[in-house]
């Protein structure tokens, strides 16, 4: 199962990739903004996206919308990992089509819990 981790902070990417590795998902592709991420997604093979919100060039929100607009991106799980905590922001993310939302800072168990939750809902549907 290949993950796409999108964040402009190299530190955050390292931490997310590291956490993913620990909870059993070692296969990860990285991108540092929405545009790069969209290109990586278009290459195919991505089965789970974890994205930041605030990024230069293309924000995570626009990235999520762009993925959802693609025929091959309608069903891919998107988890947003961000510091944006306002309720309107969370609702905007929902409307953009993200499957779950984790606020920074997070712990690996929380990350795993959200990934599991998204995957289990997907499996049941």
């Amino acid at each position: 199962m290949r993950f796409l981790v999108v964040d402009d902070s190299a530190t955050m990417r390292r931490i997310i990739v590291n956490s993913l590795d620990r909870v059993g998902y070692p296969d990860v592709v990285e991108a540092d903004d929405g545009q790069t991420a969209l290109a990586k997604f278009a290459e195919g093979g991505i089965s789970f996206i974890i994205t930041d919100w605030n990024m230069p060039n293309m924000s995570g929100l626009d990235f999520a919308r762009a993925v959802r607009a693609r025929a091959d991106g309608a069903a891919v799980p998107i988890l947003m990992v961000t510091t944006r905590s306002a309720r309107e922001d969370i609702l905007a993310a929902v409307d953009a089509g993200v499957n779950n939302y984790v606020l920074k800072p997070f712990t690996p168990p929380v990350l795993k819990e959200k990934i599991d939750a998204v995957l289990s809902v997907g499996a049941a549907a």
């Binding site: 964040d7 902070s9 530190t11 955050m12 931490i15 590291n18 956490s19 510091t83 920074k104 800072p105 997070f106 712990t107 690996p108």
Partner: peptide, 9 residues
Amino acid sequence: MTYVQFQDI
């Protein structure tokens, strides 16, 4: 390692 997230914040 997870606490290094403070840097991003």
